[in-house]
């Protein structure tokens, strides 16, 4: 530890490391922009984003069906997980004894730590057959199970720990102050939750959803494994889709001989990055506004 004495040399490293980290987002964006330049040259931005025409050999790269799949899977996943998380968070912070939370927290943490590939395997083992044998037939539909719905279910489980942890933090911090006052006025517990806590927590809830959204949007492997990977505009959630991250993962480095192909995939990464950064930015702003409000 004697080298710590000489701070001058050490500080060079410390600030260098910090510099690398500060440069990271810039590097990511500039790097991806640089690589996607040629596809942006050959195609108009609106074609890239809103055309469904995906013909790499003709230099046509319309990302619409991929973006559509991504959005659909993400929204559906949120639709499943947000209510569960809300109820769980309300129950754990407002109704249950505090030991409950202590028992549940490890479960949430373990769930958060499970790699996405494992969720994918689980999806193949459980969710896909479930949809193909039980859920779809119930609606009179025939499918192999690899579908938007399968992707969304797997994804929803993956983002539950993520959203739930944020919600728990928010509800914990709110319930310390408000409820007594409200209950003292004679409100029932559920009224208190509905009118006071949920209202107060609203920006936080929105931000947790946006966080979850950005998580879901960028999730790759697990979705790729169960979503079917067919580039189309799915007509129902039982049809397969092909989200952006899956497109990148499946094809990158494969067809380098096709002009602009890798550039197009870099552009896809760029879309992903920008959307996720924007979501994150929005969520953080919401949450910070909300924290100062308390």
């Amino acid at each position: 530890m004697r080298f710590l004495k000489n701070e001058k040399v050490l500080n060079v490293f410390l600030y260098l490391f910090l510099g690398i980290i500060l440069a990271m987002p810039v590097l990511l964006i500039v790097g991806l922009l640089f690589k996607s330049e040629s596809v942006l040259h050959a195609n108009s931005l609106s074609d890239l984003l809103f055309s469904t025409e995906w013909k790499p050999f003709q230099g046509k790269f319309g990302f619409y069906s991929y973006i559509y799949s991504s959005v659909l899977v993400t929204m559906l996943a949120l639709l499943i997980s947000v209510p569960i998380c809300l109820f769980a968070a309300i129950y754990l912070t407002q109704y249950a004894k505090s030991v409950y939370l202590k028992v549940i927290q490890p479960v949430i943490d373990i769930l958060a730590g499970i790699p996405s590939i494992i969720f994918g395997v689980w999806g193949i083992l459980v969710i896909v057959p479930l949809i193909s044998h039980y859920v779809a037939p119930f609606f009179g539909i025939e499918t192999a199970g690899y579908s938007i719905l399968a992707g969304a279910v797997v994804l929803s489980v993956m983002i539950i720990p993520f959203i739930l942890n944020i919600l728990l933090e928010i509800f914990k911090s709110i319930s310390k102050e408000l409820p007594q006052a409200s209950i003292a006025l004679g409100a029932t517990k559920w009224q208190t939750i509905k009118y006071v806590i949920l209202r107060k927590a609203f920006p936080g809830i929105v931000s947790s959803v946006v966080f979850g959204m950005s998580r879901a949007f960028g999730e790759t492997i697990a979705v790729l494994m169960v979503v079917g990977n067919v580039a189309q505009i799915p007509k129902s959630i039982f049809e397969p889709g092909y989200p952006l991250p899956a497109l990148i993962a499946n094809n990158y480095g494969e067809m380098l001989s096709i002009p602009n192909y890798d550039s197009a995939l870099m552009f896809a990464s760029l879309i992903l990055l920008v959307i996720v950064l924007l979501f994150n930015l929005a969520a953080r702003m919401l949450i910070s506004r909300y924290e100062t409000k308390i």
Binding site: I21, L22, L28, P245, G253, M266, S269, L272, V276, N280
Partner: peptide, 23 residues
């Protein structure tokens, strides 16, 4: 810096992978 790190934390790993590969 914290804010930036939180943003980076949200970047999907596929983006790191694609970026790394192009480098």
């Amino acid at each position: 810096v914290r804010f930036l790190l939180d943003l980076l934390w949200g970047v999907p790993s596929i983006v790191y992978g694609a970026f790394g590969f192009s480098v």
